[in-house]
């Protein structure tokens, strides 16, 4: 076979892979949207469930997911960024740091239900926070910490050594260099990590199963110590419990659709911010 034919087959395979991947994505979005959009109404977005989960809306679950995600990010973002800065910029290079890095990467691979059990044992029981927004947010936060740390590390490593040198050569301290030069330049990369984390946190079910989520609640959470409803858990509950599967399945698709839209909106916003930063920082 001549080289051009081989090249064509190669490119053909590569473009097929891309098309296949994109098709799956669109099929999922289309499938969820087609089934979910039917049940979306003003009431669905603003009211609580009624008639044994077969009618009404899912507003408390939307609000709950919002609180849980916000709480997890508030907890994990500063901690993760600080941790990454230490590992990248300050820690002495060597075996210990490599082991720490490896452990963090491994933490990212731990099944999410394990974080749920951990949250139950530590936050719910040991610290006695009970099943609450606080316990759920902390469990979700620990789950995304590795994601935020590795994204931040990547972003920091991508900042050229030459601009750190330039800063130090002007008599800046290492701390000033990191705060005023390295971190601002790393913001787009860190944002990418944050986007991924938000999507991950909003959609996780297992970590909140034992730590925060309730099947049905009247009204909205009053404090961080309240139990909450959450979209992913609500979907799970609708599909596994109750006595009117058809009606409940329709509502579950509605919830999925809302979850999808929320995650896409957040990602879109973050990508928008990131692009603006990028075009500023990269000329």
């Amino acid at each position: 076979m001549n080289q051009n034919t081989i090249q064509k087959i190669g490119f053909g395979f590569l473009s097929f892979s891309v098309i296949a991947t994109i098709s799956f994505l669109f099929i999922i979005i289309f499938f969820i949207a087609a089934r979910g959009i039917r049940v979306i109404s003003w009431e669905f977005l603003t009211a609580g469930p009624r008639d044994g989960m077969t009618a009404g809306g899912v507003a408390p679950a939307i609000v709950g997911t919002f609180y849980l995600t916000l709480g997890a990010i508030i907890f994990a973002l500063p901690l993760g960024i600080a941790c990454a800065i230490y590992l990248c910029e300050y820690s002495p290079k060597g075996a210990v740091v490599n082991i720490i890095r490896l452990s963090i990467n491994n933490l990212a691979g731990v099944p999410s239900v394990v974080f749920g059990l951990f949250g139950l044992a530590v936050f719910v029981k040991f610290f006695n926070f009970g099943a609450s927004i606080l316990s759920g947010s902390l469990s979700l936060g620990i789950l995304v910490l590795p994601l935020i740390i590795s994204a931040t590390q990547e972003a920091l490593l991508a900042i050229p050594h030459s601009i750190r040198e330039a800063s130090m050569a002007l008599g800046a301290t290492k701390w000033q260099t990191i705060k005023k030069i390295v971190l601002p330049a790393a913001v787009p990369g860190i944002l990418t990590g944050t986007i991924l984390s938000i999507g991950r946190v909003a959609g996780e079910t297992a970590p909140i199963l034992f730590t925060a989520a309730a099947f049905y609640l009247k009204g909205y959470p009053k404090s961080v110590f309240s139990e909450v409803m959450a979209l992913p858990y609500h979907i799970y509950a609708l599909m596994t419990e109750g006595v009117y599967p058809e009606k409940q399945t329709a509502i579950a698709y509605g919830c999925s659709f809302i979850l999808l839209v929320l995650v896409l909106l957040v990602s879109g916003l973050a990508i928008f911010i990131r692009q603006r930063q990028r075009s500023y920082y990269h000329g």
Binding site: S162, I163, E165, A166, S167, A169, L170, I181
Partner: peptide
């Protein structure tokens, strides 16, 4: 003692 480097390295500012 100021320094100018081999490759221009302005800050991304």
């Amino acid at each position: 003692v100021g320094m100018v480097f081999q490759k221009p390295n302005p800050f991304p500012k």
